[in-house]
Structures are given as structure tokens and as C-alpha cells.
């Protein structure tokens, strides 16, 4: 769908505090991992949560989530599991009194962020809202296959739709079911990988197209960022 609000901001952040985790998390993950034939999570190592990540983002000078009154809609997107069940949505609702909907989308792998944009578009249309924020979140996985040595960067990409500031482009975002023949491997880390290098390329003088394919959901995410008309 063509989003009703222009893209007015995009930034990538990669500095997040980590801490030791509580035992109840690992009991939950042990049960979940066992169900999928995965080992229990390692008792060592530091982790963060999506709730802590959005709290950190909000504390950063100039971050779009600091606009308390004007943010009416926040859509979060993540591909991987949280390090412990946390509530980043309610954390943001507590500090954004103007937000009428804050929720998250997942289970689409690398296409999760594209679905977040599509959802932001349909909600912004229905709400007639002036400013929405989409936050894509990645962190390393607490439980993985023993033969999977990869680790993911902890990273967030924030996209601002509408509000103040010059437009960086108009967005057309979609997620469709396709077989993905010939598609490239999913970006690493999945939710933010396709987006993290975009900040330096906007505004562009011609269309910029992002395309990812998630082999598990067999969905392709597409986003075309068209140059915004000059004022």
C-alpha cells in the first residue's frame, strides 16, 4: 500500500546495555526449546530485551520516540525471539501519552519490518494520524541450534512517518506470499539488515527499492521509496 504519511526520518542505533538474565526466562526457554528440539539457553553471557532497547532509544538525544505528545502510533517489528518475555509496547505507552496504538509484528523474518510499515499505513489512514513511528529491532537469539554459530548484532532502525521535518520520500510497502525463487539470502540481522544502510542514501533523486524474502513464511517484503515532491 502507498503510505499516507511521508518518510521524514530514519536512523540506526547499535549501542544498548546488556545484563545477566533471570532464571525464569531460561526455564521458559528450556520448555520452548525442548518443543522445537533445541538445547536450553546458555546460563552465561549478557543479554538485553526489546523493552530495554526501546527504553534506551527513548533516552537518546534527538531520538524520534522523545516526541511525547505528537506520536499517535508506534509499530514495532522483530524477527527473532526476545531474550526474555518483555513488553516494549507498554513501556512506550507509559511515556507516550498521545499514542493511541502501540503494538508489534513478528513471525515474518526479514519481512517483518515491511509488514510493520504496511500496518502503520492502514492504521494511520484509519486514525487520520499525523505522526507514526516504526521501530525495527534485532538482538542475538537466546536459543539456537547447536550447529548454528552465527550471532546477530543488537540494532534498532527507527523510521518516522509524518510529523515535522522535510520529507525524505514517499513509501509504498507490501508483503506478499511468493516462492522466492532466485531471492537472495535473508539479510543479517534479519529485521534491520535491509534498512540499516538506508539512512545515508536518503533523500534520493530516484526510486530506492528494498526487497527481502523470508523462506519460512515464504513471504517477500518490498518497499519503494520515491523522491518526495519539492515544496
Amino acid at each position: 500500500m502507498r503510505l499516507p504519511l511521508p518518510l521524514t526520518g530514519i536512523r540506526a542505533d547499535a549501542v544498548f546495555p546488556r545484563r545477566q538474565f533471570r532464571a525464569h526466562t531460561d526455564r521458559f526457554y528450556s520448555a520452548l526449546g525442548e518443543r522445537f528440539g533445541l538445547p536450553a539457553p546458555s546460563a552465561t553471557g549478557l543479554r538485553t530485551t526489546f523493552a530495554e532497547m526501546v527504553r534506551t532509544l527513548r533516552a537518546l538525544p534527538g531520538h524520534p520516540l522523545r516526541s511525547e505528545r505528537t506520536t499517535e502510533l508506534v509499530v514495532l517489528a522483530h524477527a527473532g525471539t526476545d531474550a526474555e518475555a518483555s513488553w516494549p509496547g507498554p513501556v512506550l505507552s507509559a511515556v507516550l501519552p498521545g499514542a493511541r496504538r502501540v503494538f508489534a509484528v513478528t513471525e515474518l523474518g526479514a519481512a517483518s519490518g515491511f509488514a510493520a510499515l504496511e500496518l502503520a499505513g492502514v492504521y494511520a489512514t484509519a486514525m487520520r494520524c499525523d505522526r507514526a513511528v516504526v521501530v525495527l529491532l534485532d538482538q542475538d537469539r537466546p536459543i539456537t541450534r547447536p550447529d548454528d554459530p552465527t550471532t546477530w548484532a543488537t540494532r534498532a532502525v527507527t523510521l518516522v512517518l509524518g510529523g515535522e521535518g522535510p520529507p525524505l520520500g514517499r513509501l509504498e510497502a507490501s508483503v506478499t506470499r511468493e516462492d522466492g525463487a532466485g531471492a537472495e539470502a535473508p539479510p543479517d540481522p534479519p529485521a534491520t539488515g535491509a534498512w540499516s544502510r538506508l539512512a545515508g542514501r536518503l533523500p534520493a533523486t530516484e526510486d530506492v527499492t528494498l526487497t527481502v524474502h523470508d523462506p519460512v513464511s515464504r513471504c517477500t517484503g518490498r518497499c519503494v521509496i520515491s523522491p518526495a515532491p519539492r515544496a
Partner: peptide, 8 residues
């Protein structure tokens, strides 16, 4: 398209 919505 299969997806999950959460946080509520």
C-alpha cells in the same frame, strides 16, 4: 500472509 501481532 502469515504473521503474528503482539504486545497487548
Amino acid at each position: 500472509v502469515p504473521l503474528a501481532l503482539s504486545q497487548h
